[in-house]
Design a protein around this nucleic acid. Structure first.
Lengths: 256, 256
DNA sequence: CGCGATTTGTGCACGTCTTCACAAGCGCCT
DNA sequence: AGGCGCTTGTGAAGACGTGCACAAATCGCG
């Protein structure tokens, strides 16, 4: 159990790609670690302790160590983790060593924003095509890409190796678009439309619903409000401790 | 244990607001149930079984029943749930009976889209103000609202009862904006900037990072690809079962 | 070379979430 | 009224995720 490193990662010369099957919760945090690591690297740090990295990523340090231990044993006792090596490892595990092509369907309000969002490009993705069902939108140029009709999907898929699709259409159109994406071989879908998609087995769907996030916050607001009404204490029950900000002030590497 | 309904909900004539403290996982699903219920109501359904509702919301029916049981005992054995009543209950618990005012800071690419997103308005929220730090953006009118300078936050907070803030700025500005929001009394923040925020105790932060979602999908792509490479079976290992779409075809009420 | 300071990696216990399976309850039909 | 079929609500078990606390490992220094 001492040092089991996973093959296929550093010298990726066709080695056997034995991906450790990570817990979902860990996978969901890896991108956050990766972002924090890039910040640290930009700030000139060569190594970082689990304490420092966990603070920058906003998690518990024990959790971070356990997460990273699932990748293998990178990191030196008494020293910390090598920033560059860890970046390489996480990017490998996340499959970011190749720049994945993404098809974005639905160039409405949100689609426009996504098309212009440089966070995709800067983190390993390339928007390969913009598609829309509305003929009046076809031909429009956004950020250097021309909007094509969604029925051109097969053509697009033939040009590019499409694995990921993003749906930013109204809910009514989402299922049909999903079917079209699946038909051309897309096996991962990021869905911004507020509806449930049914897809064949083997296709992954992640959903982002902006209104849902607000509703969750609303619940906590409601709860907080109902708490202040109850207890015998005066009024300023939850206006935070007087002096201090709670979280980790180890955000050294955030600024730019 | 038979029928414990929670006071303060139906006849909300100042009754004691005893919010049951729901599990976080349940809270996160309630908005999804609510959306499905609205669809069912629009389609004319008066009642719905846990089976039907869970299918429309894309979850396990046992999970749905347990979730709803946390709210109290609405629903009739042998019949199902009264759609209208359940909507009322969930909206009450989520604190959506009042239309909450939201301040949106950062009117860039994403901020524009959010300002124009009608999903907020249709689900209980009202964008009360658009703010930006860039003077050249101040004064611009978006969707009937004029962009004001972020330093006007105190004024805005004085006009409106602000509890929720949305941050759609670049990462470098997010912490400062969060501080300003907290300073004027905001206790819930939805953060779209890719960074960790430190806030005082009692303030809730939820984060949405579009790139992270893609990276999680990328991991699963990577894993799927490495799986097809390994097993002795031919090639079409994961191209789904021949005939059938996996999920719940009980999406009757989705279309519109 | 040995020792102390430091930090990783992990066994273990705990809490939360999920899922099954079934008793209790309700309505309808005869 | 009684019985039957259907559906909710929930106990219990298992899976999963979290966090503590500490042994093992490494570095630097005298």
């Amino acid at each position: 159990m001492s040092q089991h490193r996973h093959p296929g990662a550093p010298g990726r010369a066709g080695a056997v790609p034995t991906l450790p099957d990570l817990p979902e919760a860990t996978v969901a945090r890896l991108p956050e670690y990766l972002r924090a690591l890039h910040n640290l690297a930009d700030a000139g740090h060569e190594t970082v302790s689990s304490e420092g990295l966990s603070a920058a990523a906003g998690v518990n340090s024990a959790k971070l160590r356990k997460d990273l231990s699932h990748l293998g044993s990178y990191g030196t006792r008494g020293v910390g983790y090598d920033v560059a090596l860890l970046i390489e490892q996480i990017e490998y595990v996340l499959g970011l060593t190749q720049r994945r092509a993404v098809a974005l369907v639905g160039v409405g309000n949100l689609g426009h924003a996504l098309a212009g969002y440089d966070g995709f490009a800067s983190r390993g993705f390339r928007i390969a095509a913009l598609l829309d069902a509305d003929p009046s939108r076809v031909g429009e140029e956004i950020n250097g890409l021309v909007v094509r009709h969604v029925d051109d999907l097969p053509t697009v898929a033939a040009e590019e190796s499409l694995a990921i699709g993003v749906i930013a259409t109204p809910a009514a159109a989402a299922q049909q678009v999903a079917d079209q994406l699946v038909a051309v071989g897309v096996t991962s879908i990021l869905n911004f439309a507020p509806c449930v998609l049914s897809v064949p087995e083997g296709v992954d769907v992640r959903k982002v619903d902006l209104a849902i996030e607000l509703q969750i916050l609303s619940f906590h607001e409601h709860r907080k409000a109902s708490l202040t009404a109850l207890p015998a204490t005066g009024g300023t029950a939850l206006t935070a401790l007087p002096g201090g900000f709670a979280a980790t002030d180890t955000q050294e590497a955030i600024g730019t």
